[in-house]
Every structure is written in C-alpha cells, then in structure tokens.
C-alpha cells in the first residue's frame, strides 16, 4: 500500500512539466558551481602541490559543492512537499485515501517515500556528475559517499518538515513558505552560533550533516536524523488522523 501511494505520487510529480524544468535548472546551476569550484581549485593547485599533506580534489571541490547543494535543496524541497497533503485537502481528494482500506500511517509514509526517492534522484545525478572528477584524479569515494549520505539524511529532514507543514494547511503556498522559513531558521541557528557545542545548534539538521560533510559518521548524528524524521512523521500521521476527528 505504501508503495502504491509512493508510486502514484512519484508519477504525479513527474507528470508536471515544472518538475522537469526545476530539475534541469538545478543541474545546470550545480554544474556551474562545480565548474567555478574546479576552476578555483586548479588555480591554487600548483601552490598546494608544495604543501605537505595538501587537501585533495575531493575535500576541496566535492565536499563544498555538497554543502551548496544542501542549501539549494533546502529552498527547493518545500516547493515539492507543499502539494503532498495540502493539495489533497484543497481538491478534496483526501476522502479517497481516507475511505480506502489503508491507514493514515500508510498514506503519510507513502508520500514521504515518494519524496525521498525523488531526493535520491537529485543526489544521484549530482554524485554522478562529481564522479567525473575521477577521470582526471584519484577520488576519495568514501568521502563522496558519506557526503551523499549526509545530503540524503538532511534532505529527508527538510522533506518530513515540509510534509508536516503541508498537513497543517489547505493552501500549498502557505505550506511552502512556512517550510522554507523554518528550514532557513534552523540553518541560521547552525551558521549563526559561534560555539560549536551550543544546545541550540544541536537542534539544527544542517549542523548534524556537517560531520558527514567532512567524512565522519557519528552515531549521535544518525540518531538525531532518525529522531527528527520519526518525530515529524508521527506528528504528520496524527494530523492526518485528526482529519477524521475534526474535519
């Protein structure tokens, strides 16, 4: 059942021309950043060659690009998650799902899954683009993959946040704006805090993605992501269930 819903959502997503357009533009922007970053790296490469233990291409090109992509996707994901539940309520199609023999949990998980697969598509395309570097130099695939994993978990957080906000309202645009505002706020907490161990900073998903960005997998970070995603999924399921109680 979860897959039935995920499959339908995924197809709906790609039946809209705007999705293709956004994905195309995103890849173009990403390629542009990639080129600029690579150019900058090539300019300092001769100086780097003289330093002992100099950072390689993966650290100086790939990791920062994933950071940039994370920022772009933070703005982008709410545009896709906003429809998930808000539009169902606005078009009164939610009744179809609520009257079907499936649980609210399956509805929410199906929609979440479709977006995660969508995120994976974006991340995979970008990762493949970055792997092209491997043609000219020796890439640190470990770092590349931890970065991809970090981005996947981070985008899953933005997705689940957007999904929850989409469940709160009938207006997709309200869901999108509030999701962007909240994600941006959490990102600001991360970059704005001077002390890396501050409690506020620990609440920000992007802070937890940073160690993955530098190639470390800490169980505390994984736990944070699991808790964040789990908590918002739970809240969303409750919210969808409440449709039956207070519609």
């Amino acid at each position: 059942m979860i897959f039935t819903i995920a499959h339908k959502e995924f197809r709906s997503l790609f039946s809209a021309p705007s999705t293709w357009l956004i994905l195309g533009v995103l890849q173009f922007i990403f390629a542009w950043f990639f080129l600029a970053r690579l150019d900058a790296y090539l300019q300092v490469q001769t100086q780097l060659a003289m330093v002992a233990n100099a950072p390689g291409a993966t650290v100086s090109v790939v990791a920062p690009l994933f950071g940039t992509l994370a920022l772009v996707m933070m703005m982008l994901i709410p545009l896709f998650t906003m429809r998930l539940l808000a539009e169902e309520r606005r078009n009164q199609t939610l009744a179809l799902l609520l009257a079907a023999p499936i649980s609210s949990g399956q509805i929410v998980l199906g929609k979440f899954l479709s977006m995660v697969i969508f995120n994976i598509c974006i991340i995979a395309c970008s990762t493949i683009m970055l792997s092209i570097l491997g043609l000219g130099t020796r890439l640190d695939f470990g770092l590349l993959l931890t970065n991809a994993l970090g981005l996947l978990l981070l985008t899953a957080c933005y997705t689940v946040l957007g999904l929850y906000l989409s469940a709160l309202t009938k207006q997709p645009i309200v869901a999108a704006m509030s999701a962007i505002a909240l994600s941006f706020g959490m990102w600001l907490i991360d970059v704005g805090s001077s002390d890396s161990g501050s409690a506020m900073r620990a609440l920000s998903p992007s802070a937890h993605a940073q160690s993955l960005n530098s190639g470390f997998i800490f169980s505390t970070d994984l736990l944070f992501f699991a808790l964040f995603i789990g908590a918002f999924l739970f809240l969303t399921i409750r919210r969808v269930n409440n449709n039956r109680l207070y519609a």
């Binding site: 197809r11 709906s12 039946s15 078009n91 009164q92 199609t93 939610l94 179809l96 009257a99």
Partner: peptide, 13 residues
C-alpha cells in the same frame, strides 16, 4: 465504494 460530494479526482492523471 464511496463517491463524495466532490469527486476525488487527481486532475493531472
């Protein structure tokens, strides 16, 4: 089988 007052149709499908 349920048909609500507003048919629950996904217009893009």
């Amino acid at each position: 089988g349920y048909l609500p007052e507003t048919p629950p149709l996904y217009r893009e499908m």
